[in-house]
Design a binder for these strands. Structure first.
Lengths: 195, 195
DNA sequence: GAGGTTTAATAACGATCATTATGAAAAGGA
DNA sequence: TCCTTTTCATAATGATCGTTATTAAACCTC
């Protein structure tokens, strides 16, 4: 019983995701959010909770729908292909939409006042999880003989993530897809070869 | 004639630099700035102009006093040494001060509301200038036979900058100096060798 | 159709934002 | 000592921030 919700929750989340992607967690105001979603403030609160809760919902959605290239990459047969696919996926993601370049998850790690601290921690944890998955995948590759005995899975994971993050920063700074592709190619050229 | 200024302009700039480094451009409020500098708001305005002008002064100071490893790196004899010194300098800079990790210049490139746009543009330009210097240095290295004919100076500069930016993000996320050193080592591992 | 329940929209809340008007205090030149 | 000039501190500006009362409208069940 009761009145039906008049707006589409999924579409509102999509619109909020775009706002956060473009302006970051703190840079996005409720004025922006209501304008983008077409939903008044109290409705957003009753549907999603406060700003932090809304951002966390958006973040889950972001990983599910936009960073899906990472779990896909992890299932490729060789470590090199994993890295190559992750790099290509990051290039596509960070340059596909001209109105919100870069990576939503990274815009919030940096900067921010004190009240953004819990959000920053959440982003750091999400990032750490991705790094752990890469490290485990590279350890498996080493065990399978796909990487040489001298390879350091932890260093490779950290390095790959550093390049991914760096490309996200560069995409936000307006770098073209071609330049990012050259960066990815250079990063892969350092990849340890099979024994 | 007239009353003398009671606070030290240089020390106030140093304190403001720390605040911006820790919180970013938008995350830093005048409450933070007056607390850190010990200078009341109107004195900050009369001495430095508004927030944007203050940040620009701080940014110049940052490059002069903290990113001095980059011009130093450019004068080393080989391209590989340039890259190695830049990477090591970035590691030191982004992890030296526990209270403000990462890179001041990068905290502001990402995220931010509309009114931070001019500051973001200034940071992007500063970053582009650093990239141009690296590219020219690598072109020289190629001409001097220090880099092979197949090397692409623009790609190398973009790649090096991507790693530097990625490490800055990781430092802000709490990465240790050791992990960053492993990232730098991996980045250098197959630097194009002299023909 | 009436009662109870959920959502919608308007408008306000206190807090904080960057910025500045105001007037007192301090200094040098006459 | 008076006058001019510059800096100082207090406090207020209008705007915007995230968050809610409050009231009106829409719906299901009985």
């Amino acid at each position: 019983m009761g009145r039906h919700r008049e707006f589409d929750v999924e579409k509102a989340l999509d619109a909020a995701l775009c706002v956060f992607w473009r302006k970051g967690y703190e840079g996005a105001s409720y004025a922006d959010l209501t304008k983008a979603t077409g939903v008044e403030r109290p409705a957003l609160y009753s549907a999603f909770g406060n700003k932090e809760a809304l951002f966390r919902k958006v973040l889950v959605r972001y990983y599910e729908r936009y960073v899906d290239y990472l779990p896909a990459a992890l299932q490729l047969p060789t470590a090199r292909e994993v890295a190559a696919h992750a790099l290509q996926g990051a290039i596509d993601l960070t340059t596909r939409y001209p109105e919100h370049t870069g990576c939503l998850a990274i815009q919030g790690v940096l900067a921010g006042s004190d009240e953004a601290e819990p959000v920053r921690q959440a982003l750091i944890e999400a990032r750490a999880e991705g790094e752990a998955q890469l490290r485990e995948r590279f350890e498996r590759a080493k065990a399978e003989g796909d990487l040489p005995e001298t390879a350091r899975p932890d260093a490779l994971a950290a390095f790959l993530l550093a390049v991914l993050h760096g490309m996200a920063v560069q995409a936000k700074a307006g770098f073209s897809r071609d330049v990012l592709a050259a960066v990815a190619e250079q990063a892969l050229s350092t990849w340890p070869a099979k024994a």
